[in-house]
């Protein structure tokens, strides 16, 4: 589905990504793990074209998207859910969803507000509430729902559990499970290892902008030494 090869990215003169390579198969949930500053968010942004990659390829179903503007990458089928959520504070829930709406994609069941309300029931009662007047958890659900309105083939989820109450994190994990069951591929960046292990198939560990290991999630959960080396603070 998604194949990233040798991705490099810079912020000004600072070299952040040093050749990140990873792959996400169809219907697979891959977790991008690593400490703060390892380059997880930058990897997401570079894939999405929000930080223009200085080298490397980003192939979605074989088509190279590196160097294209973000809107073209989104139209090609990548859906991006930013870490900071970035809901449009003045727009209502329905209007936020409208901004994300794109035409249906062949072979996918198109997302509608109704289907999304089934996935995140608490959004339905808030339909006319401005995004700025919602709780963090509700905003997180709204950002995911908004991105799904674009009928993406693959979802880039940047730290969806960050700053959320444990009960909301649980509900988020359920929703991701549902999406996975629908056949959606997901690249998920996470600090919360418990959350990642609950939803992930494979793990890709980053350190200082370089991929160190890729392995099945279950294997990582068995290898305490590896976790201590790359993930513990």
């Amino acid at each position: 589905m998604l194949a990233v090869e040798g991705l490099h990215a810079h912020y000004g003169r600072a070299h952040i990504l040093h050749g990140v390579s990873l792959a996400v198969g169809a219907g697979e949930v891959v977790c991008l793990l690593g400490r703060n500053g390892a380059g997880k968010s930058t990897t997401m942004k570079a894939i999405m074209g929000l930080v223009p990659p200085s080298a490397g390829t980003v192939r979605l179903e074989g088509r190279d998207l590196a160097g294209q503007p973000p809107h073209a990458i989104a139209r090609a089928g990548l859906g991006y859910v930013p870490e900071e959520r970035r809901v449009f504070a003045d727009l209502t829930v329905l209007e936020n969803l409208e901004v994300g709406r794109r035409p249906p994609r062949p072979g996918l069941r198109p997302w509608t507000p109704q289907r999304l309300f089934a996935l995140f029931p608490s959004l339905e009662t808030l339909r006319h509430r401005p995004g700025g007047r919602m709780s963090g958890g509700e905003q997180q659900m709204l950002t995911i729902a908004r991105t799904l309105m674009g009928n993406p083939r693959l979802l880039l989820l940047d730290e969806p559990s960050e700053g959320l109450a444990p009960v909301v994190v649980e509900r988020m994990a359920e929703a991701i499970g549902t999406l996975k069951a629908e056949g959606l591929s997901i690249l998920l960046s996470e600090q919360n290892l418990a959350f990642a292990s609950a939803v992930g198939d494979r793990a890709c560990i980053l350190e200082t902008g370089t991929p160190r290991h890729t392995m099945p999630m279950a294997e990582l959960m068995r290898d305490a030494a590896l976790r201590a080396r790359y993930l513990s603070v």
């Binding site: 936020n96 901004v99 674009g150």
Partner: peptide, 24 residues
């Protein structure tokens, strides 16, 4: 209108609007 909603969204966060597939 959709156009107006997109404009209001872009007023708040242009980059996010483009990440959602709208040609700025």
């Amino acid at each position: 209108t959709r156009f107006g909603i997109l404009l209001r969204a872009a007023t708040q966060d242009r980059e996010m609007v483009s990440a959602l597939g709208v040609d700025q």
